[in-house]
């Protein structure tokens, strides 16, 4: 029982971490939480699905193509919605992302099926589990886990060593000062929203073979990613990774040992405990001083 719970917890935890990393990228650059991130995930998954079933593309190609498409979705949303609101206060932006998420959910439902209609994507690799130190592991689980780690490392390097990454951090610190230093803040934001959506696309593409896609998948996942970011410390990249894995593990252990229906509320309990006892999260919050 325990090995199985651990592997499934780590896999869903890696997924939550990936979704949370997308949130954190946007938060670190723009200072806003994107409530439409779950819908970016949902639409990214459906991009891959459409190419496989409707256009008949080979698996790997569609999976690879879905990521740049998600990037475009994010960049288009930035140009259409967030750039005009650049100087607006934070609550306005959150309200706008909420509106966008609802709009995208409706579009997803209209294009890709009715309520409760599940669409699965066939797995890329052999679905049969194999044993690692006595724990049954699905190959797809390993891929999800590995990809989350790779994304994490990639972003670490990106923020540390590239000019674009440093520009993103600078705009988060102060958009005004970044202007003065000659950074085109608008372009950095477009890049950021695109990258955020692309990460959501990666997560969707990797996870789609393990779960079923529905237009409603976004909001539940988003709350788990919130729990991961708050647990790790709002704005911390490594915090999001650790937080995501912990949320996944908690969920799976609570579900396995106490009650399977309790799985859904683990995220909320984690958020409340962190807010009461350690609001800055495990890795120190990047955002509390914005209060």
């Amino acid at each position: 029982m325990l090995p199985y719970l651990l592997t499934s917890g780590l896999t869903s935890g890696a997924l939550y971490a990936l979704v949370a990393i997308g949130l954190v990228v946007v938060y670190r650059s723009t200072g806003h939480i994107n409530f439409a991130h779950g819908e970016f995930f949902m639409i990214g998954g459906f991009f891959a699905y459409s190419m496989i079933t409707m256009l008949g593309f080979p698996y790997l190609l569609s999976l690879v193509l879905a990521v740049p498409l998600s990037f475009c979705l994010g960049a288009v949303c930035d140009r259409a919605v967030f750039r005009p609101l650049m100087k607006a206060p934070g609550t306005t932006i959150v309200l706008a992302t909420v509106g966008l998420s609802y709009l995208l959910k409706g579009v997803g439902r209209y294009v890709w099926g009715g309520k409760g209609e599940y669409i699965s994507i066939k797995s890329i690799v052999d679905p049969a589990p194999f044993l690692v130190w006595g724990m049954p592991v699905l190959p797809q689980q390993l891929i999800v886990f590995g990809a989350a780690m790779l994304c994490m490392l990639g972003f670490f390097a990106f923020f540390r060593w590239t000019i674009a990454g440093k520009m993103m951090q600078a705009t988060a610190e102060s958009a005004f000062a970044s202007y003065l230093a000659g950074i085109r803040v608008e372009r950095v934001y477009t890049l950021t929203w695109g990258v955020g959506a692309a990460v959501a696309g990666v997560a969707a593409v990797l996870m789609a073979p393990l779960t079923l896609l529905t237009p409603d998948i976004g909001s539940g996942l988003l709350i788990k990613a919130f729990a991961a970011t708050i647990l790790g410390g709002l704005g911390s990249m490594s915090g999001a990774l650790v937080g995501g894995l912990l949320v996944g593990l908690c969920e799976s252990l609570i579900g396995g040992y106490i009650d399977s229906s309790l799985q859904e509320v683990a995220a909320f309990i984690i958020i409340m405990i962190v807010l009461v006892f350690r609001p800055s999260g495990l890795f120190g919050a990047y955002g509390v001083r914005r209060a």
Binding site: I33, G90, I223, I230, F268, I271, M272, V276, P279, R290
Partner: peptide, 21 residues
């Protein structure tokens, strides 16, 4: 109450989770 002591984003995040709960 715990979220009201912190910045506005925490209230939004905590209450979304609470609504689902």
């Amino acid at each position: 109450l715990p979220a009201l002591r912190l910045s506005g984003l925490y209230l939004a995040l905590a209450t979304v989770a609470f609504a689902q709960f």
